[in-house]
C-alpha cells in the first residue's frame, strides 16, 4: 500500500472546525426560534439547473444512469414550498464543476432558506438578524446595482453602450472586445474586479439586478425594469444570493428554454428542464423570498480567515 509520505493532514485547523460547529449551532438555534422547519433534500437528482454559468458534476450508478450532484437545493425546496411546507431551511452540500480557487471549491456548504409571504427586503432583515448572531452585531447597507456601478465606475450598467463597457473592462486588464464578451459578461467582470472590492468592509446588499441576470427572481416593471434579486457582500466577498421568488410557471419555462439555447450555442452540456419543478410552479409556488448563503465563506469571515482552505477540513485538492 502507498501511504507513507502522502499529505494526509487536514487543510483547516481544528480551531477553524470548532468555529464551523459553533456557526452551525447558531444557525440551527436561529431558525428553531423563528419556527422555520429544517429539511433535507437529495444530493443526487435526475435533473439539474439550466443556468449556463453553473456546471453540474455527474455521478453514474451501476446501471449507467447519470445523476446530477445538485448545484443547490433550490428546486427540491421549491417543490416542498409548493406542497405547503411553510417556511423551510436546509444546510447541505452543493457541487459545481470547475469552480476552484481561493473562494471556491467544487463541493461546498450552502445554507438556504425560504420565507413564505416575505419580499426580498423583509428577507434581508431576517438575514441581518442571523448575521448579528454569527458575526456579531453590525450595520448593513442596501445599494442598487445601478447606484453601485455609477458610484464606483461612473457607468450606468443598464443603459451604457456596450463599447463603454468594453472600454471599462480594457482599462482593468481584460480585453473583453477581443474575447467577444457580451454585455452581461462585461458586467460580471466589472462587478467582480471593480465594484465588489470598492464596496468596502461590512455588509452590503446589492439590489435590483439587470433583468438579463434575473436568474429565478421576479421582475419589477418600470423603466428600466429590474430583477428583485440581491447579493450580499461582506468585506467585498460575495456571501449570499437571494430572490423575491418568481412564481409564474410560464415565465420560468421561458427562462429555462433561453438558458438551454445559450448552452447549445456555446457547446455546453444541455440538461433537460426540470419538469417536476415546472409542475410544482403550475400547482402554485406560494409568494415567498429565498436566499442561499455560502456557509464556508461565512465561517471564513467569522474567523477572519482569508481563504476557504482555512475552513474546509479537506479541500478538493486533499479530498
Amino acid at each position: 500500500m502507498e501511504g507513507s509520505g502522502c499529505d494526509w493532514r487536514p487543510d483547516a485547523s481544528i480551531d477553524a472546525l470548532r468555529l464551523r460547529a459553533r456557526v452551525l449551532r447558531a444557525v440551527r438555534a436561529h431558525f428553531d426560534a423563528e419556527g422555520v422547519l429544517e429539511v433535507e433534500t437529495p444530493s443526487l437528482g435526475s435533473r439539474t439547473v439550466t443556468d449556463p454559468s453553473i456546471e453540474s458534476l455527474i455521478a453514474r450508478d451501476g446501471a449507467g444512469r447519470a445523476w446530477y450532484l445538485q448545484t443547490s437545493p433550490e428546486f427540491a425546496m421549491k417543490r416542498l414550498l409548493a406542497a405547503g411546507s411553510g417556511p423551510i431551511y436546509q444546510i447541505t452540500r452543493a457541487f459545481r464543476d470547475g469552480e476552484r480557487g481561493r473562494h471556491h471549491n467544487h463541493e461546498f456548504s450552502i445554507l438556504e432558506w425560504y420565507r413564505v409571504g416575505f419580499d426580498h427586503h423583509r428577507l434581508i432583515d431576517d438575514i441581518d438578524v442571523l448575521l448579528d448572531t454569527v458575526l456579531g452585531p453590525g450595520p448593513s447597507w442596501r445599494l442598487t446595482f445601478r447606484e453601485a456601478f455609477s458610484r464606483h465606475l461612473g457607468l450606468d450598467p443598464l443603459t451604457a453602450p456596450l463599447a463603454d463597457l468594453h472600454d471599462a473592462c480594457r482599462s482593468r486588464g481584460f480585453e473583453s472586445g477581443a474575447a467577444g464578451t457580451d454585455r452581461d459578461e462585461c458586467l460580471d467582470w466589472l462587478l467582480s474586479v471593480a465594484v465588489q472590492p470598492a464596496l468596502g468592509s461590512g455588509r452590503v446588499y446589492l439590489l435590483d439586478f439587470p433583468t438579463s441576470r434575473a436568474a429565478l427572481a421576479r421582475v419589477r416593471t418600470g423603466s428600466p425594469a429590474v430583477a428583485e434579486r440581491f447579493e450580499l457582500y461582506i468585506d467585498g466577498i460575495e456571501v449570499a444570493n437571494g430572490y423575491h421568488e418568481l412564481q409564474d410557471a410560464e415565465e420560468l419555462r421561458q427562462r429555462m428554454q433561453r438558458d438551454i439555447k445559450v448552452r447549445s450555442r456555446m457547446g455546453q452540456p444541455v440538461p433537460e428542464a426540470d419538469d417536476r419543478l415546472l409542475a410544482a410552479h403550475e400547482a402554485g409556488l406560494p409568494a415567498c423570498a429565498g436566499v442561499a448563503v455560502g456557509l464556508d465563506r461565512l465561517v471564513m469571515l467569522a474567523g477572519r480567515y482569508r481563504s476557504l482552505r482555512e475552513v474546509l477540513a479537506f479541500t478538493q485538492d486533499t479530498a
Binding site: 469552480e99 486588464g173 460580471d188 467582480s192 447579493e231 442561499a292
Partner: peptide, 14 residues
C-alpha cells in the same frame, strides 16, 4: 492565477 466568478455569472481566470 486567480479564479474569479460571481455566483450567477461568467467565470474568469485572472
Amino acid at each position: 492565477n486567480e479564479f474569479v466568478k460571481p455566483g450567477k455569472g461568467q467565470a474568469f481566470v485572472r
